[in-house]
Amino acid sequence: MKALHIKGDDSKEMNSNPVRPAGDNLELTPTAWTILGFLSLQPRSGYEIREAAKRSVGFFWGISDGQLYPQLKVLEALQLIEAPNGIEGPRSRQRWQLTDTGREALRNWLSAPSAPIQIRDENLVKFLFASQEGPELLIHLIKERRTSFEWFLGAIQGVEPGSSWDRPGDDSSLQGPSMLKRYGLEFAEMVLQWCDQAEAALHSSALQQKQMKKE
């Protein structure tokens, strides 16, 4: 199996490294692996990849135009993707497909160990330190979190796995997207339940403190 590495999406870092053939020690950015993943489902243009990412991996794996289109050029130079009909028209509308080498690289990446999960959540960091300012601030942060996850839940509910594919996917190809949607729904519902419980606990605690002061 080829040694696979993920490097940052910083454009300066990407452009400072020479293009290597798709062999050992293949180094690709997270965006590049995402592109290969979407192209493994069907040929797509850069625009179609971007729109598909917004409906799916955009919730947990950021991808932007500034990263997407330069990475398409890198993947083409590495012979991991190709334009089946040649380069024609605006590159944003040019359709790409995986080469055999690209599919092999993706298969190796999918089976390689994943990087440790890292969650960056400013709301939770604030929550850690807010109690010294009183329960009102904690309740404010909970309400802020609830609003965010109510939006997230609605967005996930609106996702229809496979709806943007050129042809309906078979049951096996839809298993991953469908299970991922269920993961998102249950995660959002769990956080919203926590928000309700945490806010209720804070209100109950504040009420008890008021009663104790009266006594």
Rank of each mutant, 00 (worst) to 15 (best):
L28T: 02
S45W: 07
A112V: 00
L26K: 05
L174I: 04
K7N: 10
L124N: 09
G176W: 07
W96K: 03
Q211G: 06
R44Y: 03
L68T: 03
V125T: 11
V19I: 10
P168D: 06
K7G: 08
S92H: 14
Q197K: 15
I142S: 08
R44C: 01
S92R: 14
W194C: 10
S92K: 15
A130Q: 06
D170K: 06
Q208K: 15
L28R: 03
R95M: 10
V191I: 14
G58N: 07
R91G: 05
D65K: 01
K181F: 07
W109A: 14
K210G: 02
Q175K: 14
K54R: 08
D171M: 08
F38N: 09
P135H: 06
A112E: 13
W151M: 12
G89R: 05
Q97T: 11
P177L: 06
L124T: 13
E189D: 00
K126Q: 12
S114Q: 13
G162K: 05
T147Q: 12
S16T: 08
Q94L: 13
L153D: 04
K210R: 15
T99N: 02
Q118P: 00
P90F: 12
A105P: 00
L106N: 02
L128W: 15
T101G: 09
G134I: 09
Q211N: 11
L141P: 02
W61G: 04
E122T: 13
L28F: 02
F129K: 15
K181Y: 04
Q42T: 00
K214F: 06
R146S: 09
E215Q: 15
L78W: 00
R182W: 10
A3E: 14
L128K: 10
D121W: 12
E88W: 03
E189S: 07
D121N: 10
L68V: 07
L41Y: 13
E76C: 05
N15I: 12
R145K: 14
A32G: 10
W151G: 04
W151D: 10
Y183P: 00
I142W: 06
S205E: 14
I156N: 02
N108R: 09
A22M: 08
D121T: 01
T101A: 12
L128S: 12
R95A: 02
L72G: 03
G154Y: 10
D24K: 09
L141H: 07
K54S: 06
L138A: 12
R50Y: 14
G46Y: 05
W165E: 15
A22L: 01
L137H: 09
W194N: 08
R20Y: 01
Y47K: 04
S40H: 08
E136L: 10
P84W: 04
E133P: 01
L41M: 07
L26A: 05
G176H: 11
L207T: 11
R95N: 08
T29E: 00
E27L: 11
L78K: 13
I81Q: 05
R20H: 11
S131W: 12
E215Y: 09
P116I: 11
R55K: 13
S56R: 07
I81V: 15
R20F: 01
R167Q: 15
